[in-house]
């Protein structure tokens, strides 16, 4: 111990530390119950998913018995033309509907943020209403609508429906982004000689880009994962992956199903994480 360290201070530290540790360690009934509830919650949320992922590597054809590690279900997956077709359909629908809903949603948000008109709050409510409409109601109504206008069910009806439920999420995200947007930046650009279009291209769009990308990732994930609405509006030969999976399950759950689900889970997780990371990065600026 060096002599120039004040002894009084050391004495204080020693007196305080053990007391703190004691408080943190003392087991109480309340603490025990809380920990248990927390563990149950996490188990409830994640055990089924973990089981699903594990069994996608199980070499047993049926049953809940672990027989050994294998990648054969994944191999089969990528050699099954029907699964690949469904995956391709899912990708086409997700890409097109994401692009459409991002463009429409962003422009809608800009219009609502920048202009003042009659019944604005009503229009605003109508725009994000689909977020809270039960999916099954939306699915049935879309099905009836397509029947009424005699539009044959297929990729087109899927895309239209996906735009309908993805666009409100884009709209909500972009409204929040635009609320923080400093309009004087656009005025500054115009002041410096940029016309409206140049201002949009050089200033507005680059500054909104993180919001646009993150809402696009969100829309893509929503579209890729959607089952209920897709189930109603899909046609023969235009099944998306979730609809295909549902069809297969009727013949019993196979390890291939586990494998597709795992792939979808990972894809969704990555996309949502990316979207979240983008939101974080720009809000930290």
């Amino acid at each position: 111990m060096s002599t120039d360290t004040p002894i009084v201070l050391l004495g204080e530290r020693e007196a305080v530390r053990p007391r703190v540790r004691e408080a943190a360690q003392r087991p109480t009934l309340g603490r025990f119950v809380l920990t248990l509830i927390a563990l149950f919650t996490f188990a409830f949320l994640y055990v089924p998913i973990v089981v699903l992922v594990l069994f996608s590597f199980n070499s047993a054809r049926t049953g809940a018995v672990w027989q050994g590690f294998t990648l054969q279900w994944y191999e089969r997956l990528f050699n099954n033309p029907r699964i690949l077709d469904a995956a391709l359909n899912s990708l086409i629908v997700a890409l097109v509907s994401t692009a459409a809903s991002v463009v429409i949603g962003t422009l809608m948000a800009m219009a609502m943020e920048r202009y003042r008109f009659r019944f604005q709050s009503v229009w605003d409510g109508l725009l994000y209403m689909p977020v809270i409409i039960p999916e099954i109601v939306m699915g049935i109504s879309l099905l009836l609508f397509f029947a009424a206008i005699r539009l044959e069910r297929g990729l087109i009806t899927l895309i239209i429906s996906h735009v309908a439920f993805c666009m409100p999420f884009v709209y909500l995200t972009m409204r929040a982004r635009l609320a923080d947007f400093d309009r004087s930046l656009e005025e500054a650009a115009q002041d410096l000689g940029a016309d409206e279009w140049t201002t949009f291209r050089r200033i507005t769009l680059p500054l909104l880009m993180p919001g646009i990308v993150s809402s696009a990732l969100l829309a893509f994930t929503l579209s890729l994962d959607d089952f209920v609405i897709s189930f109603f509006v899909t046609g023969v030969g235009s099944q998306t992956l979730p609809v295909y999976i549902w069809g297969q399950i009727r013949r019993g759950i196979t390890p291939e199903i586990n494998a597709i689900s795992t792939v979808m889970l990972i894809l969704s997780f990555v996309l949502v994480s990316l979207s979240h990371a983008l939101q974080q990065r720009t809000s930290a600026r």
């Binding site: 004087s184 650009a189 500054l207």
Partner: peptide, 27 residues
């Protein structure tokens, strides 16, 4: 505004956050 021979210094400065100082001034 973009056809007027005047320039403004804004109260909030309104510097373009995604551009460097040089890019801001070059605009």
């Amino acid at each position: 505004p973009f056809r007027r021979n005047v320039n403004t210094v804004f109260q909030s400065y309104a510097l373009f956050p995604h551009l460097t100082v040089e890019q801001n001034i070059s605009f």
